Simulated assay, not measured.
Amino acid sequence: MTSPDLDGVLAGSPLYVYEKTKGEDELQHLKSLVEGEIKNAIVNTEATGVILKCDTIGSLEAIIDLLKKEDVPIRTADIGNITRRDIVEAAAVRENDRYHGVVLGFNVKVLDDAEQEAQNRSVKVFNERIIYNLVRAYVDWVTYQKDHEESILFNEIPPVCKFQFMKGFVFRRNDPAVFGAEIQVGKLRQKVHVINVEGKKVGTVHQIQESGKAMEEAATGMQVAVSIKEPTIGRQINEGDVFYTDLNSRQAKQLVERFNHRLNDKEKEVLNFVLSLKRKDDPAFGYL
């Protein structure tokens, strides 16, 4: 004997209708609450920022809070695996801001087509299973990239340097002039232009040698042989003279405004002295 269909038996019962309606209302209420939580957690803007994908609402909210504490802007934050669309969106951000044009994933998969798209578009994807590790990996990467980029730009500027023509060390008088030099402040590098204490151009460093071996640069305290194109010893330069590396206005401005923290106190003094020499002829030097 089969059991009767309970819905069929109680279908006409007022109590059944009330209980069923109450259950549906509660279910609808819970559904609305969940949908509200999802909408509140999901971020979708046109602003420049990272793309974030997580496995749950809880992890999404937690990582959003951590990123905000690190002042990391978010373009989109959603639940689900990392898709090709996420990569394409990050690539669009990367065109204007390579530090934020990335995808962060927590406990999700990178779909095959997304992985291929990331390789093709050179989009960096961070995917971790520990929340702290995800945020830390991204922040550390940004720090390293900025330091690396800054180092490249800084090294393109002639180093701040003060050096002296050592007395008794004349090796060749001209074409090029070769003499012993002591590096008093900063670093001397090949191919940099040199000025004297009056701000007049002396020539260009052709080569630097120590114990007969060529070197690209010499640091503070070193005594090296320096060859400089253009001047003649006894005419334009003499034993005991002090020289400084030359800068153009743009390079000086960068050192003052962007890279001043990379200079030590003595290098800053030398830079200020060179600026004072240059500004005698050009008051706007280092400002433009």
Rank of each mutant, 00 (worst) to 15 (best):
residue 6 L to G: 04
residue 8 G to E: 12
residue 11 A to P: 06
residue 13 S to M: 03
residue 14 P to N: 07
residue 21 T to L: 10
residue 24 E to H: 08
residue 29 H to N: 15
residue 31 K to H: 08
residue 32 S to D: 13
residue 33 L to R: 15
residue 35 E to R: 15
residue 36 G to V: 03
residue 36 G to R: 13
residue 37 E to Q: 11
residue 39 K to D: 14
residue 41 A to N: 08
residue 41 A to Q: 03
residue 52 L to C: 05
residue 53 K to D: 07
residue 54 C to L: 00
residue 54 C to N: 01
residue 62 A to L: 12
residue 63 I to S: 02
residue 64 I to P: 07
residue 67 L to R: 09
residue 67 L to K: 06
residue 67 L to P: 01
residue 68 K to L: 09
residue 69 K to C: 06
residue 71 D to H: 08
residue 73 P to S: 07
residue 74 I to K: 04
residue 74 I to V: 14
residue 76 T to F: 06
residue 80 G to M: 07
residue 89 E to L: 07
residue 90 A to Q: 06
residue 91 A to H: 00
residue 92 A to D: 14
residue 93 V to D: 04
residue 96 N to I: 12
residue 102 V to G: 03
residue 103 V to N: 08
residue 103 V to I: 04
residue 105 G to Q: 09
residue 106 F to P: 03
residue 107 N to Q: 09
residue 109 K to A: 09
residue 111 L to T: 10
residue 117 E to R: 02
residue 118 A to K: 00
residue 120 N to T: 07
residue 125 V to L: 11
residue 126 F to D: 00
residue 132 Y to D: 09
residue 134 L to R: 02
residue 136 R to W: 10
residue 139 V to C: 01
residue 139 V to P: 00
residue 145 Q to A: 11
residue 151 S to A: 15
residue 153 L to D: 14
residue 155 N to H: 11
residue 157 I to P: 08
residue 158 P to Y: 08
residue 158 P to V: 04
residue 159 P to W: 01
residue 159 P to D: 03
residue 159 P to N: 05
residue 162 K to A: 01
residue 163 F to D: 03
residue 167 K to F: 01
residue 168 G to F: 03
residue 168 G to K: 00
residue 171 F to R: 11
residue 172 R to N: 15
residue 172 R to C: 10
residue 175 D to V: 13
residue 176 P to W: 04
residue 176 P to N: 02
residue 176 P to T: 01
residue 177 A to Y: 05
residue 179 F to L: 04
residue 183 I to S: 02
residue 184 Q to A: 07
residue 188 L to A: 09
residue 196 N to Q: 03
residue 197 V to P: 06
residue 203 G to Y: 10
residue 203 G to V: 08
residue 203 G to H: 03
residue 205 V to D: 04
residue 207 Q to H: 09
residue 213 K to H: 11
residue 215 M to F: 04
residue 215 M to P: 06
residue 216 E to T: 13
residue 228 I to S: 04
residue 229 K to C: 05
residue 230 E to K: 15
residue 230 E to V: 14
residue 232 T to Q: 12
residue 242 V to Q: 09
residue 242 V to D: 02
residue 242 V to K: 09
residue 245 T to H: 00
residue 246 D to K: 12
residue 251 Q to I: 07
residue 252 A to M: 13
residue 253 K to C: 08
residue 257 E to G: 02
residue 257 E to Q: 13
residue 260 N to S: 10
residue 262 R to D: 06
residue 263 L to W: 01
residue 265 D to C: 00
residue 266 K to V: 09
residue 266 K to H: 13
residue 272 N to P: 00
residue 272 N to H: 11
residue 273 F to L: 09
residue 278 K to A: 10
residue 279 R to I: 00
residue 285 F to T: 00
residue 286 G to M: 07
residue 286 G to I: 12
residue 287 Y to I: 07
